[in-house]
Design a binder for these strands. Structure first.
Lengths: 203, 203, 203, 203
DNA sequence: TATGAATGAGGATTCATTCAT
DNA sequence: CATGAATGAATCCTCATTCAT
């Protein structure tokens, strides 16, 4: 029988991940030291290594938890919405909301992850999977809209989905680093107008 | 009269920058060593330091030359085209062409730069300036189109420009890291269709 | 009255020592970790520290039990044999038998101990005492043989004893590490022939 | 053209090896730190790593230079001596002389090497090769003696050689760690007497 | 008494930068 | 000017030992 409560371990892991994230956001992965992370999680280095075998594993776990689950979360939050267009609209609203209200740090972490993706196959893989998850889900919404007659049958669902995800991540790069003059609200509006004009020509 | 022609010096600098870029593309900035760069430019470390005072300066110069000039280059390549729509179309074609034909490595370098932007203000600044240069130029094209009656006056030029740049960079992230299943050609097509539908409602 | 019988405690100690030995044989003393030893003895580290105050103590105890008692054991096994020559022969036979049948691991442990002897005075001391014990006993056999007229009075008992012990340990080094081409049987034979020729010139 | 004299590098390597040896003799290989070695060779750690890629390589090179060459050296020193017996005698004299006059530290280094041999295959291999080199050379001397009629044809050359090498190394263990009461001179004498009695029964 | 989580000093190795030649 | 050897602080990770539960 363990001396600590069974989820003590998970709590510690989470504390380390939180600490790691905030350190990574500040200096990126390479410049963040294990000591930094240990200090910020109020643990000794040694203790930290009981929960993660290498620094890299911290990054990978963070990647999985913070970014890898995005598609599933998005799906869970929107799958019950009736109608393809309302669902699409909701997806975009959720993205914008997350970017500057709910999880503003996730954007910065995405940048950190991309920085690592250059030389770390697993990170790259993780980002690619997130991409295909998101594109797949958005495309499925659009296809559903086409089939139900809500959207024009001429619309190329996977391509539009890819464009939306691309735009979302591109915008995230700039927004998360404080690029001046960005108007997220206006971008959301224009995006919706363009999509509506394109997808629902009968309107 | 200097021993070496200033031209020679510039050539050396360029050789170092080329070497540095290719090293950065392989391992990112942090993991690339000055020795790596020196070796690939067939120079001694000592010699390298005669051209760049620090490793960071190499990155910064590279950033300026490879990414910072993009807006000016785009402008130079398209300013003589008559009509806002043809110019916009050309801009998008140039982007796509660059991405997989002319400068495929630039996309990867963009990622490296973003990775550094997290902790290096100057790099971040450089990327933001490139952004505002691109957005400014695209917005000016659209505005010109509105003024000339080519585009609908309801179009929000800076926002559309920002969306296009965002999408371009987002797509670059994935394309440059070999995300499977991306169809650049189809994305260009769909983007143009959406823009045309949105900007030229009279068609 | 103690909670556990003293016998139980001794059994635990022995289990730890056995585990420790097998770990030491695999990676040497320095590279063996206390966790390794605890794991192999199916004990927690904390429990292990109730039986031995330091890692070093495990080594020292092992040394004493596995190597330090050799002289006494040899004596016990041979003291009842009548005649100096038969006793000498038996000693050599016991050595050879132990080396490749009864305690092949002891040879490897001897090497581990020697490795530690370089920097640990107590270990060195232990090995020296074992040496003088063995040399003393063998010398006493030879001296007895000389006194009884069995051996030539010209024989230098302590020196011959030292040579035998030296040869035994030297051969152990190579045999225990699997040096190819060693013929223990032939060496025993030749050793006995040489000793007989030298000690019993009358034959 | 190199900035340093061509054998500067070799000199540095040798200095490092000397420093490493003396550190290893004091604390063994595992406890010796790279900093220790650097300090004793009056170099920075960084500099040291320009000459040896890992700590282990220092050990391996030392092994090769200090121990691996023994057979060749012994052969070079004795090959011109006429007569098998005088050559054998000389070999033994050289060994004894080396042990307490010429290279007393080599004995201690042999122990360090044995300590590593437990877990390092390359070290073990090196020691085994030294062994087979020495045994091979001594056996060749004895065989030559048999063929020339100098020695009894009944002598088992490889076995006697193995016994001599075993004894030499076993004696080295004790002598090099200062075991009290060892009389090298007497051991040499007795060894020679035993060998003569055994090999030259006609005397 | 037993457990195993926590500590933190210590060790091998790297690398940007300098500077004697 | 060029070279590349030297520096040494900084980094990741380990492990003997302790101690709260």
């Amino acid at each position: 029988m363990p001396k600590v409560s069974p989820n003590h371990k998970e709590q510690r892991k989470q504390a380390i991940l939180d600490a790691a994230q905030s350190v990574f956001l500040g200096k990126g992965y390479q410049l963040a030291t294990v000591d930094d992370i240990a200090a910020r999680s109020h643990l000794s280095v040694g203790a930290l290594y009981r929960y993660f075998p290498t620094k890299s594993d911290i990054m990978l776990t963070l990647l999985e938890r913070k970014l890898g689950r995005t598609p599933q979360i998005l799906e869970r939050l929107t799958r019950d919405i009736a109608g393809a267009w309302p669902r699409l609209v909701r997806c975009i609203e959720i993205f914008v909301h997350a970017l500057h209200v709910r999880h503003p740090s996730t954007g910065r972490f995405l940048i950190v992850a991309w920085g690592e993706a250059i030389q770390d196959n697993t990170v790259r893989q993780g980002l690619h999977e997130r991409y295909s998850g998101l594109v797949g889900y958005l495309a499925s919404i659009i296809e559903q809209g086409i089939m139900s007659g809500e959207f024009s049958p001429a619309a190329d669902a996977p391509v539009i989905a890819a464009m939306l995800v691309g735009m979302a991540d591109g915008v995230t790069l700039y927004w998360s680093t404080g690029t001046p003059g960005m108007d997220l609200r206006a971008m959301r509006l224009t995006t919706l107008q363009m999509l509506r004009t394109y997808l629902k020509p009968s309107d």
